[in-house]
Design a binder for these strands. Structure first.
Lengths: 338, 338
DNA sequence: ATGAAAGCGCTAACAT
DNA sequence: ATGTTAGCGCTTTCAT
């Protein structure tokens, strides 16, 4: 690998002059600058970013911690993050925690050791405590899509999940549905990761005097398989729901599959609404009606806020994103009462 | 940030001793080693990987270049790559070329400037020429899932796409289909990225005396939308096909959507087989019959071969992976002749 | 306008 | 068993 020294020798100047010439910083004569640049080009010189990072104390690299990159939702986030960061000259390290707090901490430490300039943490496999430690250790860190309102994590792009849950409930209610099933997350024993979505959903129903029927809820456990099985149970019950709210599109897809398996027609016999609006949801059969989060907008705000913080320590105020209903073809009027 | 010097001062030893103690390398007395480690722990010392990388001339980082991380196929690859690399102490930088050769080259250069130890290049948005240049510049680079047999790129994990195309054709043929449509890629004017899959497919048909009908092919152009539109055209033709082979699952999903739009029942009225077996294909409605590539296996071989090359310069022989048929529910007997 | 020199945090010969 | 020393490739004050 050719270094600035090689270029310096070739151009007959000092290495610092090469540095200046290439960065366009110092006060050099056009002649030398041109000569140096020419030599660099001829020698095929490429700057060594790791050396530069060492002295500048910045890597122009950001970390993105997600539960599982192979899931479309997170892949989308990663893609947006990459794009937004790239515009500002940053690159991003994406890492999957696989929902394992142990691994999450290891990866966070690793990101820190690699001296990334900041990290975006998306919930799942990453303990609030690990976040606090990282932040205390001086690593700029921002949380995104965090739903556990109770934990205090540094955020800048908030999503109003509760409003989303309410929108789903309202939509289904207005279509005449009264027996509405729920397929949602389950974390640990009782604590739901999607509990704000559920709260919004149940709150809207409760405000109409609809009481909560525990027989109508199934657990997706972060996988299509589990949500399909859960939906199968709901469908096989003596009094099956006429609609199901799945708290993520992944779960909704499981529900769709379950309905197909049982020959239940969507939306004629069963309405289903999802949450997230992942790319694939536009192409399910039937296309999925869902509660959309503007992932690109959220990530953009989060990243720009993070990069601003890194560069000039500015503390951006936080914006609130409220989800919207995307009407496609998986919901319809509730069947007539028998 | 605390450095080895801080630790050295606290422990009353030289910085090199700290380095030895922490790496477990030198010949230190148990006493000092323990004391140093204790001091490091107390001070919350974290090694600076960029400094280490500079001297060791290795970053323990690999690059992965894909067309678009937001597509499930590539997200899956990334996830596997991450996992396999992690086991060997490597991390991976995933970057999307967005099918733009310009951007692809920029990213490759960037990876090189960051001194990644090696890169895996997945086709799309990356010119063979850029690969050659990178390799000539001393960057270990391995190509994966490359289908353009004509270009000479360094590979170690080969996929027999042609065999895959043949399997698809055989399957459909055996089901009695004679009018089989094709939805495939289109690159530039005439050159198909998926041309090996197509060659295998058409070859199998040709060997049975079935001649190629240009009216039966549509182009997916790397998106679900385009493939849906292409399928719509095929379906609307005077003599629509009874089956469609889509050269990627993405396209197959477009076909499924098109069929749904037209009220064409799959598989009763139309059989469809995809290619790749992306995760979502198991949960389409109906679940997709497809030609499976064992992505995890391919990536594992590729990565291990790359890492081996990086570490000891070993040149692994290349393995050939042949795709297999995954029978789900999107294909069935051809309808009786009218 | 250019060069000299110091240093970023760490590793690894090489002394002692 | 531990310390000394010399870098890794670059940036950036400070002289000149």
């Amino acid at each position: 690998m050719t270094t600035i020294y090689d270029v310096a020798r070739a151009a007959g100047v000092d290495s610092s002059t090469v540095s200046y010439a290439l960065s366009g910083k110092g006060t050099l004569s056009e002649a030398t600058r041109a000569r140096v640049i020419e030599c660099a080009r001829e020698l095929g010189y490429r700057p060594n970013y790791v050396a530069r990072s060492l002295v500048k104390r910045e890597t122009r690299t950001l970390g993105l911690l997600v539960p599982d990159l192979s899931q479309p939702f997170y892949a989308e986030l990663a893609q947006v993050a990459e794009r937004v960061a790239h515009e500002k000259g940053y690159r991003v390290f994406v890492m999957s925690t696989l929902l394992d707090d142990e691994l999450g901490r290891e990866l966070l430490d690793d990101l820190s050791d690699r001296r990334v300039d900041g990290v975006i943490a998306v919930p799942g496999g990453i303990a609030p405590r690990a976040i606090h430690e990282a932040r205390d250790a001086g690593l700029p860190i921002l949380c995104c899509f965090w739903e556990e309102a109770k934990v205090d994590v540094p955020t800048s792009a908030l999503v109003d999940f509760e409003a989303g849950g309410k929108i789903a409930a309202d939509h289904l209610w207005n279509l005449g549905h009264r027996r509405i099933g729920l397929v949602t997350d389950l974390k640990g024993e009782l604590e739901a990761d999607h509990h704000l979505r559920v709260a919004g959903f149940q709150g809207a129903l409760a405000s109409r005097g609809q009481c909560f029927d525990p027989h109508l809820v199934g657990f997706g456990k972060s996988s299509v398989e589990a949500s399909r099985d859960a939906a199968l149970e709901l469908l096989d019950a003596p009094e099956p729901p006429t609609a199901i709210f799945a708290t993520s599109d992944i779960y909704a897809i499981g529900v769709l599959t379950a309905a197909w398996t049982r020959g239940v027609h969507v939306p004629a016999d069963l309405s289903v609404v999802g949450f997230d609006d992942i790319v694939t949801s536009a192409y399910t059969v039937p296309p999925l009606t869902t509660i959309r989060i503007d992932k690109a907008a959220v990530m953009t705000v989060a990243l720009e806020s993070l990069m601003a913080r890194v560069r000039d320590g500015s503390e951006a105020g936080s914006s609130l994103f409220v989800p919207s209903l995307v009407l496609r073809h998986s919901t319809g009027q509730a069947p007539m009462e028998a």
